[in-house]
């Protein structure tokens, strides 16, 4: 177990510089974005009301009140989020391939450690997972910060204060990243973790069988996906309206667990019996 944590720390260290860059980009872009779009909004208000002599009511009717939704719908907000998502997706592959194709072939070291090789696999997965959770927590903190900042930037009459739930709901897909219930959290992140394991195992299939492995890996991913959605297929095509929603949910959880266990077991097997440096 201690070896797992040592490996985890080591893997986190290796990504740390890039991670800091992602964090700084996100903070700067979202805060600067909020300042800029709120200033633009207020300038327009001034123009309409002071220069064009329109009433405040008619301005608000045309442009609406300023809320954090204005920010969340802008590139300033979701740009860095997209950047983080893409970076982490790339890193799912990079975290393995760098050990083979980096300047010094580090995979030798990792495979010759006096510890279960599965620890390397789990530590890498946990690294990705920790990074995602870290960025999501950063986002929640940032939203709180932005909720306070907007009060300083926009006068009360022009402002619509949203609750954090409303902010999150204002941005499509956001409730996947920040679910509003514990169950939602389990579903989102359980599925995410499962996907990471499946991709990791597909990468190990490629690393074990090389060119042939690309095809086998592709088939494996397709098969995993099929198993995962099999309860849906079952209920949609063969047994419409047969299952209660809760039964459907449990079947889905079960399918997810099968896929995840399968991925980890296969990863364990490949690392111990088939992997090549």
């Amino acid at each position: 177990m201690t070896n797992f944590f040592k490996l985890l720390r080591f893997e986190l260290d290796r990504f740390f510089k890039l991670y800091i860059v992602l964090i700084v980009v996100t903070i700067v872009s979202q805060l600067a974005g909020l300042v800029i779009i709120s200033k633009l909004y207020m300038r327009r208000a001034r123009e309409e009301i002071v220069v064009n002599q329109n009433s405040m009511e008619s301005f608000l009717e045309t442009y609406g009140q300023f809320s954090l939704a204005n920010l969340t719908h802008s590139l300033w907000f979701f740009g860095p989020i997209a950047l983080c998502i893409v970076s982490l997706l790339i890193y799912v592959f990079f975290i393995w391939y760098r050990d083979w194709f980096g300047k010094n072939t580090f995979i030798y070291r990792l495979l010759m450690l006096p510890t279960e090789r599965l620890n390397v696999y789990l530590a890498k997965a946990m690294t990705i997972f920790t990074m995602v959770l870290g960025l999501v927590s950063l986002q929640i903190v940032l939203i709180y910060l932005e909720m306070n900042l907007v009060r300083l930037l926009v006068p009360r009459d022009f402002r619509l204060d949203l609750t954090i739930h409303e902010v999150i709901r204002s941005f499509d897909y956001f409730n996947i990243l920040i679910p509003d219930s514990f169950l939602g959290f389990l579903i989102s992140y359980g599925t995410g973790l499962m996907a990471v394991f499946v991709l990791f195992t597909a990468i190990l299939i490629e690393r074990s069988y090389r060119l042939k492995g690309v095809f086998i890996g592709g088939l494996y991913v397709a098969a995993s996906f099929f198993v995962f959605i099999s309860p849906l297929i079952l209920s949609e095509i063969f047994l419409p309206r047969f299952f209660y929603p809760i039964e459907m949910f449990l079947l889905e959880v079960f399918a997810g667990l099968i896929v995840m266990t399968g991925a980890i077991w296969l990863g364990y097997y490949l690392l111990n019996k088939k992997i090549r440096v």
Binding site: G102, K103, N104, T105, F106, I107, Y108, R109
Partner: peptide, 9 residues
């Protein structure tokens, strides 16, 4: 000990 170093540069 492989013929090239395997520690991170």
């Amino acid at each position: 000990i492989p013929d090239a170093i395997t520690m991170l540069p």
